[in-house]
């Protein structure tokens, strides 16, 4: 196996592993955030509007970590800077 093929295979495996781990953890933590917010909403319905706005913002910020992983995977798969050395 020449080094270009090796880099390609390693890239594919690494981006699959990265997207797997990098979406599991933010999904778990977003679930925790939603469940806590729902608990708060059922306990105190009068602050539900404010909780919902804060929940949206924090979900967006949590979500962006998964989005970063996706972008890294897309860069690795479609615009890999390392492969240019091997395939001119």
């Amino acid at each position: 196996m020449d080094s270009g093929t090796l880099v390609t295979v390693v890239t594919i495996v690494a981006s699959a592993a990265a997207i797997t781990l990098g979406t599991i953890i933010p999904a778990l933590m977003e679930g925790r955030a939603v469940s806590k917010a729902l608990e708060g909403m059922t306990r105190q319905p009068e602050v539900a509007d404010r909780l919902r706005a804060t929940l949206f913002i924090s979900m967006a910020i949590l979500e962006s970590t998964a989005i970063y992983v996706l972008l890294i995977c897309l860069i690795l798969l479609f615009a890999n800077p390392l492969l240019g050395r091997f395939f001119q």
């Binding site: 967006a60 979500e63 962006s64 989005i67 970063y68 996706l70 972008l71 897309l74």
Partner: peptide
């Protein structure tokens, strides 16, 4: 950076 990348990544994904 995160404002730009969040919007782009969500729409693209």
């Amino acid at each position: 950076l995160s404002l730009a990348l969040r919007l782009f990544g969500n729409v693209l994904s």
